[in-house]
């Protein structure tokens, strides 16, 4: 089974985003960038499918990683290759595309690559949209299994345990399908030095958005980006009795 894993280069999850003074966006100059954490989980799961770790041996035969972003997104693809993916595709774009445009581009990649499974993060930690996987599934008329905490592949199906409100739900989707990953699916590995070296020799094809003949015209205009109202730190209280008295006077107890 061929697996396609879309990955995104985003601000590192340990860095606090700062809004630009002119309210045009978030300042990404000189900020550490990394692979989106949910994408890392998707890459890890695909690699485990190939290794047979937690999955039937060689469930995945080939792992293709695709990223849409600036030239530096190549580093993100290299990270995935070092984790164990086989080859990469970079669709270069200097503007941050909307989920609809990303989904359309990925649809074009799927039509070219013909994977049986698209495994991807449920959301990127910059735009926080949580939309591309669902949209790609819709555009392809494929079933979807979002927020995966466990995936089993077999009999032409992916049986996925999903994190939902109130607990977990297990569904079986016919392949080909789109599965999006949640936090509890796995803990991604750190690439070993030999694998980082090996990854340097793996192929990355570079493409332009225009190569896919897809309309990526924005539908949304960002008018401004502002800082949320700040909460002020309150007071330290000495003990539980004082706390209860304060909460009673606030009317919340």
């Amino acid at each position: 089974m061929k697996v396609l894993v879309p990955v995104k280069r985003v601000i590192d999850s340990n860095v606090k985003a700062r809004v630009k003074a002119d309210q045009s966006g978030v300042d990404l100059a000189n900020v550490k960038m990394s692979m989106n954490p949910f994408c890392e989980i998707a890459v890890e799961e695909a690699v485990r499918m190939k290794e047979g770790k937690g999955h039937a041996a060689e469930t995945a035969s080939e792992i293709v990683v695709v990223s849409i972003g600036p030239a530096q997104a190549q580093e993100t693809i290299r990270t995935a290759l070092a984790m164990g993916a086989d080859r990469g595709i970079l669709i270069q774009s200097d503007t941050d595309l909307e989920p609809l445009a990303v989904a359309k581009l990925l649809k074009a990649v799927v039509e070219e690559e013909k994977p049986e499974l698209v495994l991807m993060g449920k959301q990127s930690i910059d735009g926080d949209n949580n939309a591309v996987g669902q949209m790609l599934a819709a555009l392809l008329d494929w079933p979807q299994a979002t927020f995966a905490a466990k995936i089993e592949i077999g009999d032409g199906k992916a049986t996925v345990t999903r994190e939902v409100d109130g607990g977990v739900q297990t569904v079986a989707v016919q392949l080909p399908a789109v599965v999006t990953t949640d936090l509890r699916l796995n803990t991604p590995r750190y690439a070993s030095l030999p694998n980082i070296m090996k990854a340097k020799k793996k192929e990355i094809a570079t493409k332009a958005v225009a190569d896919y003949g897809v309309d990526v015209t924005p539908r949304l205009t960002v008018q401004k980006v502002t800082e949320p109202p700040k909460r002020q730190a309150g007071e330290k209280v000495a003990d539980a009795a004082e706390l209860v008295a304060k909460l009673k006077s606030k009317g919340v107890l």
Binding site: P99, L100, N130, A131, Q134, F147, D165
Partner: peptide
């Protein structure tokens, strides 16, 4: 924007060829 809404809303948006507005 609960887990169900997040699951189905983008799917509907894609079918309607519109950009979803999340959360």
């Amino acid at each position: 924007a609960n887990m169900d809404g997040k699951n189905f809303a983008p799917r509907i948006a894609a079918k309607l060829d519109v950009s979803p507005i999340s959360d």
